[in-house]
Every structure is written in structure tokens, then in C-alpha cells.
Amino acid sequence: MKPRIASQYIPLLATAVVLATLYGAGCASFHNFFSLRVLVNLFGGNAVLGVAAVGATLVILAGGIDLSVGSVIGFTSILIATLVEEHHVNPVLAILLGLVLGALFGAAMGCLIQWFELPPFLVTLAGMFLARGLAFVVRPDNLGIHHAFYAERINRDFALPLNSQVSWPFAATCFVTLFVGALWLAHYTRFGRYIYALGGDETSARLMGLPVARTKILTYTVAGLCSALAGVVYTFTTQNGDPAACVGKELEAIAAVVIGGTLLSGGVGYMAGTAMGVLILGLIQTLITYQNLNSWWTVIVVGLLLLLFILLQNVVSSLSGRLDSPGRHG
């Protein structure tokens, strides 16, 4: 029985080992890799993915999936850009509106999944097409944001200077703050634990008297909010709104979640693993850039790594699988 206890931590441990190995390999191979700038870029450059992956983690932990992430990012970014640049709406207001719409969008998908018992894959696939289409309805091409709020507040006042050359971008602050919040949500709130229970065994959760419907809908709402926030962060990092932005980001987010040790079947995983997963994806990209390799190598390496982790999870879950109980028939 003893080895099973640790088995749940094995994927998380593996993620940490991969992260440390990649970082160590980078530092050993390239003399300027071990620098504050690389580290800051790792967080800043992957903030959009990181924020999206937090939402994806919650949905996957709850036993679901959300394919609408990339489209909602595109929609939110172009909505904010259009409101700010063409309709002269206060940027803070535009951002808030974007977040509220994202949350509502997620809530609507959650309601469909819960009340009509539709498969999350299909509902969020429909959501993906819908949000992408709406993004192009808002504006068919991209639009730079030149408002002073972006130029001065976000990029100058909200950035934390670390030394004379490097400063910590606000996008990275968003990512880290959201991550800490999600950590608290997942491990220190009842709602967070209900997510785990729901993903672990929905029937049991219902029989245990847990609020299954509310939890499921709320999970998709929070995930929608995270997608919209990723859209907001996208406008921070690119100063731009783009209806075609982040196509396929949801798959990258799912990859980060799985590499972070969360089981796609739900109920098992850690928010911390997802953060490491995001950093691993970022590190691979950085390393491949340093190697002067074609960027498509990133995709190949990520694919292989993903495969490795799925195999690992398979081994772990079959190790910790419960004994088969005999049938109980007449």
C-alpha cells in the first residue's frame, strides 16, 4: 500500500524535474542564459498562456474541457481596442466590460453543459466558433491601442523596475497574482475542493450532497473570466487588439496543464504544476531560440514532452488503480 501514497505526487515531481533540467541545461549551454532578463521574459512572455492555463486547470480538474479560450482572447482584445480607440471609452471600463462578458460567456457554456447534459467538448467547441466569429464582427482586422493609459500606466507606472535595464512587466504581475489567487481558490476554498470532488466522481459528489450544478457552472464562469483576462493581458503585452489572435491557445493551455501533472480525466492535479507547465513551454521556446533552430522545433518538442507525460500519467494511475471488485449479481 505504501508506494501508492506518493504516487499522486509523481507527475508533479516529474514536472519540477523537467523544469529544473531545462533551466539548468539553458544556463550550462549559454553564458547569458542565467540572467534576470531571461527570467523576466519567461514570465512576461508567457503571461497570456499562464492566465489562460489557470482557467483551463480549473475546468480540467472539474472533469471538463474548454476549447473557447483562444477565441475569447481574440474577442476580448479586439473589443477593448475598438472601444478604446474608436469609441473613446475609458480603458478601465472597457477592460471591466471585457471581463464581465468573458465570465458571462463561460457561465452560459456552463449552464448548457449542466442543464442539458451536453458534452463540454462540443459546447465549448461551439463557443470557440461563436467567440471567434463575434471577434471578427467587432472588427475584421487588428487595431493598435495608443491610449495614454496603455502607454503610460500599464507600461511605465505599473511596471516594476528591477535594475537599470530590466523591469517586471505588469502582464507578469497579472499572471502571478492570478496564479496565487487560483492557488488559494483550489486549495483553501470549499468551491475549490468541490471542483476536485466533481472531477473525481460526479455521481459520488451528488450523493455526498455537494452542490454539483452550482460548482460546474461556476467553474466554467471562472474559466471564461480567465480567458477574458488572458485577452486583457494580450492587449497589455502587444498594445494591440486582434480578432485572429491566439488561435489554438486553448490547446497550448491544455498542454501546459497536462505537463503540469493534472489528469485530463479530472479530479487530480495541482495549480502549482500548471505554473511549472507554462514555464516549461516558455523555456523550450527560449532554448530553441537560443539554439537558432527553426521555431517549429518548439512544437515538436512540446508534442514529445506531452506524449511522455501522458504515458507517465497512465503508468501512475494504473499503479494507484483500485483493486477490481467482483460483480455483484444474482
Binding site: Y196, D201, T203, S204, M208
Partner: peptide
């Protein structure tokens, strides 16, 4: 309170 035939709890928690 009810205890069901199949253990209706969450195995991973």
C-alpha cells in the same frame, strides 16, 4: 445519513 453499496466517495481526495 446514507452509506451506499458502492463506496460513494472521492477516491483521490
Amino acid at each position: 445519513s446514507t452509506v451506499y453499496q458502492e463506496v460513494n466517495l472521492i477516491p483521490h481526495l
